[in-house]
Simulated assay, not measured.
Amino acid sequence: MALIYVLGALSVLVPIVLIPVLATRFVPAVRQSRAADRLRVAVAGLTDAFGRIGAALVVLLTGCAAVVAVCWPLGEALSRLERSIDHPIFEHVHARRVDVWADINSFYTPLGDRYPLKWVTVVAAIFFAIAWRRRRWWIPLVVMPLQFVVEQYTQQILALTVDRGHPPTDVGTYPSGGCARIMLTFGTIAVLAGLTWNIPRRGRIAMLTAVALLVSMEGYSRIYAEKHWFTDVIGGWIFGPMLLGVLALTVFVAVGRVRPPIRSVTEPAGDLDATEPEAAGREARLHRQRAGN
């Protein structure tokens, strides 16, 4: 029985420790990587061709297709672990359920249901539309409902393609929609908050940690409430962040907050390390010319 409570404690401690470490060490490295700069080049080209909104739409559709392409075979692989992992964990939890702890988890887990998150989506859309009234106020009105719809239908595509069934106590299937919905809804709110106010880095990390904590606790509660197989929750923990990344990039493209690439869109793809000195040299020559004038 102690194992159940240890897992509950880990569902709280892991995101609190892991997210700040990833945000301070992993994310800066990714931003400076060649792959990230190639993505900026692609976004710049799409923006020149279709405008910000058109480029954002292309990013959204392409990103959702990429998420499905990754999570579909992942779901098939996790399905093969049902007998060896999901059934033993389910039976372990079922045989050792404590009424008080079950009530607590049953109280928390509806946070990931569609009905309460619909109201969160509506309130957040109106709130940020008012906060953005002096700029593109309609973007939050589109983005908040959009994240809800994108999560629902992308999840349904995966549920139909993987078609792995569900536990005997509920109809939850792969991937865990509760985890993904919380990630998308509150993650999109965090993205809009970061675009609305000048929040310091520590504040942004704290917001992401809070979102990850809600998602992690939701996954644990879905397992304890016997609504999902264990691997369904693992799938939700992967599916949700990937889809949030697509939504966040879509929003950044729409509002013009994607950093310009190191190299020009018209320059041929090559060694980015070699283009950085060239770019620095061009900037230095321009500075000397301006100083001479």
Results as ranks from 00 to 15, higher is better:
E218R: 03
W137H: 14
V246H: 04
P200N: 14
I238R: 00
F230W: 10
P241H: 08
T154K: 00
W237P: 00
L208Q: 11
Y108R: 01
R222Y: 01
P168N: 05
F239C: 09
W229M: 01
P110G: 13
A210L: 08
P200G: 08
V120P: 07
I126K: 02
L244M: 09
R136Y: 14
W119V: 12
I238F: 04
R181W: 11
N198F: 09
P175T: 10
I130S: 11
W132H: 11
G165M: 10
N105I: 03
T209E: 10
A212H: 04
I223T: 06
P200A: 09
R135Y: 13
G178H: 09
R136I: 11
I205Q: 07
I139V: 15
Q156G: 00
I205L: 13
G203H: 07
V120C: 12
R222S: 08
V162Y: 06
L111N: 06
Q147H: 02
A129T: 12
C179H: 03
G203C: 12
R135M: 08
L141E: 15
V120R: 04
N198K: 14
A225H: 03
L213T: 12
S216P: 13
R134E: 15
T196A: 15
L160N: 15
D163C: 11
I234F: 06
T121R: 02
V120A: 15
G172V: 01
T250K: 07
L243Q: 01
L146H: 00
G240Y: 02
T188M: 15
F128Y: 14
L117H: 08
A180N: 03
L184W: 01
Q155K: 11
V171Q: 10
G245R: 08
P145R: 06
V149C: 13
R134P: 07
F239H: 11
C179N: 05
T250P: 01
S176W: 04
R134Y: 10
T231P: 02
